[in-house]
Design a protein around this nucleic acid. Structure first.
Lengths: 341, 341
DNA sequence: TTGTAGGCGTTATCAC
DNA sequence: GTGATAACGCCTACAA
């Protein structure tokens, strides 16, 4: 008794035509009150659910935006996810998320999936450097999409990126202004463009200020607490403690802070730290000194991205828009500055 | 030049019929090598992307499973998300995620969205008690779906749930076996069925063992560190420190542990703790004593759920399957037991 | 091996 | 106010 019903079923049962049913169901004018009432009643009885595939097919739009993330399971992405959800909704679109588990092939699969008619526009969030080829291919299809975080050299696409080089500059110059000489850098994942940009910002700023960069200056860590912990422990054991460290990511800094705590090294008295991202796991603001860091306005970036994307969906021939977002230094306590936030 | 092309475009350009194009593109037999080659070449030239809406419409299946979560941004869900991703993939389905921001209306909207032909089956993960009505309605439509975590009284649907009452029993009896008399319970969110079940398990077990439950026994906290911190701080300030606490969630316990640390109260010497969930933020295993807890096998639950759901998709008239998963006690150090893991 | 025709469920155009 | 009819892009008997 409970098979799926269509407007045709309703039409038959109500003794009218498909056309009229469609009109009534969509609150369009040109339906007598009597017919409308009957149609609505029958459609309730039949437990009617419209088939959006058919509807989207004829309307040539889905009112849906797909989001492909490097990985769905990264707390730092939460602000961005919330922003994308809220802002797609604001424009009357639904948002669908999927994560690529940091796997290029999976990401390609999902991009295919979404671009095969299942949504009107696509958000690609992440910064794997290997994505370049995949993005170039996508760009050729004219399918509306926007790239967040990553950027492809010489390719004009809708793009929202943080000025990571400038962020590094802010961080390093803050440490320099406090009189630090021996400033080291804990890197992020080598295969992410943000890591490379932040590294470049570090190197450039150091050079600009005539600071020395030695073999010891750059520590090959990753965006994980584990990595920060391990690498800082190594420095401690080697009796090679830096005066100051600029981390490519807050998570890495958190791991390092754990190592410092275990070794009884004081922050900021014995070592000064600056992070990047303004990540804030619920714990750390209490257990450890508050981390001075470079803040990215994730929520705002998501909003800008969706605005651009929706505009592109509505105007398919629009020129690509690139928006560079400026990060800001948030001074807390890991550098000993008096200013608190 | 780069408009979207269809099989008809290919057919014209290759000088064959749509039928033949369809066959060639789908690797079906009955196409001459010559035709196949030409068709494939033309489809490359045209940058052809199949329209899955049309395909799904005629095939009456999407090879897609939708997942609606209470909230996309909860680290504790990560294992489940990964499991759902991996296991849908295993069955040849794609998985699409969306979060309801703990908002009933949003959840309803997404369930509608998915059941309007956009996927073959649906996973609903969460335990809001208000979802009951919404689930009942969905159950009437015969659309294949599975409910994880939540359970609706008297309603037979595909369902994977943890035996939360039994989990509480394990926790409380562990504390009793260690000689604790004054065992209190920090609750989870009042509007989640898991909280109520865990509370019930606590109360029942206490009564079974003739333990007293007073006005002080049950603390009205929530699934957040903040709430655990605040409520434990209050007990400390009131000089009303329990001998032992069973928390409805590990996150709550983590917050409480922070309060205990600040107050200089030792675990397990001064107070014994048992959590629930086996949540493990990267920090805590190092900074605080490892939490004895009740573990839910999230990954396995996800696998079972998808197996059931896919089976239901393939056999629409199958009877609903309900699977009750048994949690287990993981003894670490917050109760002072010698056994470590 | 190839093509024709019909249909999936919906909306839109144009008559009546 | 109402209803044929033709799309949307694809697949699949069935016929040739």
């Amino acid at each position: 008794m409970n098979t799926i019903s269509t407007i045709l079923d309703i039409a038959k049962m109500a003794g009218v035509s498909k056309t009229l049913v469609s009109r009534a169901l969509n609150n369009q004018p040109g339906v007598s009150e009597q017919s409308r009432e009957k149609i609505l009643r029958v459609s309730k009885e039949l437990n009617y659910r419209p088939n959006m595939l058919a509807k989207s097919l004829v309307l040539q739009k889905t009112q849906t935006i797909g989001v492909v993330l490097d990985d769905l399971c990264v707390p730092f992405y939460f602000d961005m996810i919330r922003s994308l959800e809220a802002n797609t909704k604001k424009h009357g679109f639904s948002s669908l998320f999927c994560g690529a588990n940091d796997n290029e092939e999976t990401k390609l699969k999902y991009i295919r999936f979404f671009t095969e008619g299942r949504c009107d526009g696509l958000v690609i969030y992440g910064s794997h450097i290997n994505d370049a080829r995949l993005i170039r291919n996508l760009a050729e299809t004219k399918f509306p999409f926007i790239l967040i975080e990553n950027q492809i050299h010489d390719l004009a696409v809708n793009n929202v990126v943080l000025d990571n080089v400038y962020g590094s500059k802010l961080a390093v110059e803050h440490l320099i202004s406090l009189g630090c000489k021996d400033i080291r850098h804990f890197m992020g994942d080598m295969n992410k463009s943000v890591s490379l940009d932040r590294l470049r910002g570090y190197v450039e700023t150091m050079k600009q200020h005539g600071m020395e960069i030695t073999d010891d200056s750059i520590i090959n860590s990753r965006f994980s607490q584990q990595s920060g912990y391990t690498q800082m422990m190594k420095l401690i054991k080697d009796d090679n403690l830096p005066e100051a460290v600029f981390f490519a990511g807050d998570v890495t800094a958190f791991g390092a802070m754990r190592a410092l705590a275990e070794a009884g090294i004081r922050i900021p008295e014995d070592i000064k730290l600056v992070g990047f991202d303004d990540d804030k796991p619920e714990t750390f603001d209490r257990v450890f000194p508050a981390l001075t860091t470079i803040k990215q306005p994730l929520y705002e970036m998501g909003q800008i991205a969706i605005d651009i994307l929706v505009d592109n969906i509505n105007h398919p021939n629009k020129e690509p828009v690139k928006k560079i977002i400026c990060p800001e230094l948030v001074i807390r306590t890991t550098c000993g500055s008096k200013i608190q936030i």
